[in-house]
Amino acid sequence: MESAIRYLRGDATDPQAKGPKVIAHVCNDLGGWGKGFVLALSRRWPEPEAAYRRWRRERARNDFGLGAMQLVQVERDRWVANLVGQRGIRTGHSCGVPVRYEAIDAALARLADPVLALGASVHLPRIGCGLAGGRWERVEPLIDARLCARGIAVTVYDHD
């Protein structure tokens, strides 16, 4: 089956589309925010990191954990979706990769309804495939099934 995802070269923090936009990315379940795509997000807006850290700190009273999704408004028509799809962070190679495909799948499923309600498109890097160590051929079908199949326009950005 051919993917409905559009691929562009460029910066996922600067989405190329009209209308409301959601920028989605994968976070870990430890509260760590300091490497990879999150640095580009934090250079542009402080809110996603602050909201993520607060969400993690107050986790006894919320849904923070693998498979959870947090939507943070950063501009009038722009949001960042923090998707918890990574168990810990990679320290040594003996533990395997931190990516958790089932958690990415669950977080994408949670993202679909709010995106549809906003009438937004979704923009992202190759989530779960950078520091999390995942494989795109495992992530792409999840995006197709959870977002594209519901009529949501998705653009993936490959940074130069």
Results as ranks from 00 to 15, higher is better:
L8R: 14
R9I: 10
D11P: 08
D11L: 07
A12V: 00
A12P: 06
Q16D: 15
A17F: 05
K18G: 15
K18P: 02
K18L: 12
V22C: 10
V22S: 05
A24I: 01
H25P: 02
V26G: 07
V26I: 15
V26K: 00
C27I: 00
N28Q: 08
L30D: 14
L30G: 12
G32H: 13
W33C: 05
G34K: 10
V38P: 01
L41E: 01
R43Q: 15
P46Y: 11
E47K: 13
E47S: 11
P48S: 11
P48Q: 09
A51H: 12
Y52D: 08
R54N: 13
R59V: 03
D63G: 05
D63A: 13
D63M: 02
G65S: 11
G65K: 11
L66K: 07
A68S: 15
M69P: 01
M69R: 14
Q70H: 14
L71T: 01
L71Q: 09
V72Q: 01
Q73Y: 02
Q73C: 10
E75L: 07
V80N: 00
A81K: 08
A81I: 07
A81Q: 07
N82K: 05
N82W: 04
I89D: 01
T91L: 13
H93C: 11
H93W: 12
C95D: 15
V97S: 10
A103D: 08
A106S: 14
R110K: 15
R110W: 07
V115C: 10
L116E: 13
L118N: 03
L118A: 07
L118E: 02
G119V: 03
A120R: 00
A120H: 02
S121W: 02
L124H: 07
L124P: 00
P125K: 08
I127D: 02
G128R: 06
G128T: 04
C129D: 03
C129F: 01
G130R: 10
G130F: 05
G130V: 04
G133M: 06
G134M: 08
E137R: 13
R138Q: 15
V139F: 05
E140C: 12
L142D: 07
I143S: 00
A145F: 06
A145W: 02
R146N: 13
R146Q: 15
L147S: 04
L147H: 01
C148H: 04
I152L: 07
I152G: 02
T155G: 09
T155P: 07
V156C: 15
H159M: 11
